[in-house]
């Protein structure tokens, strides 16, 4: 297997930004995750290793280190709820509980219908608009459980 050409042509441009091609690895992991189903399969990581001329274990090691990279399949929508200090002071735990109820997904898991995965995350830099959640890469801030429910219900 090899990476799709749409991705490799992007990566070919990206590696020119650095004196060492490997520096493009983290941006490359992002591109693959975004374009190949929201997670990084073992095959994708091996393909990336081949692209960069690295041992697969090197690429696995990097991917595993960073919380934004997901190494297992997930639901169609990823809901990340911040549980750090500023959010927890303004009701993050109640928000998270409601998110789980509305989506049917347990924390750290996926709903039976495969629509939602829900995870706890550390501070997202939305502290002055707490609590917050991130739905598929978009911040939703100044939330209460009812507003969060409306946002989640309107997800396709």
């Amino acid at each position: 297997m090899a990476l799709p050409q749409t991705i490799t042509s992007e990566l070919d441009a990206l590696v020119t930004h650095y004196p060492d091609r490997r520096a493009a690895l983290i941006p490359a992991l992002h591109r693959c995750q975004e374009q190949l189903g929201g997670w990084l399969s073992p095959q994708t990581l091996e393909d990336l290793a081949a692209y960069f001329g690295l041992e697969p274990v090197e690429v696995f090691g990097v991917a595993f280190f960073y919380p934004m990279f997901r190494l297992r399949p997930r639901g169609r929508h990823l809901v990340s709820v911040c549980h750090n200090v500023s959010c927890s002071l303004r009701g993050a735990e109640q928000l998270l509980e409601h998110v789980c109820k509305v989506t049917g997904a347990p924390v750290g898991g996926t709903s039976p219908d495969g629509r939602f995965s829900v995870v706890r995350v550390e501070c997202q830099g939305a502290c002055a608009n707490a609590p917050m959640l991130d739905l598929d890469g978009t911040f939703h801030e100044d939330l209460d459980p009812e507003r969060a429910e409306r946002i989640l219900r309107s997800a396709p």
């Binding site: 650095y18 520096a23 983290i26 941006p27 992991l29 992002h30 960073y66 919380p67 990279f69 550390e122």
Partner: peptide
Amino acid sequence: CEIWMHPGAGAY
């Protein structure tokens, strides 16, 4: 001078 963007991936 060149300016390049580079994304992190969630590690404090």
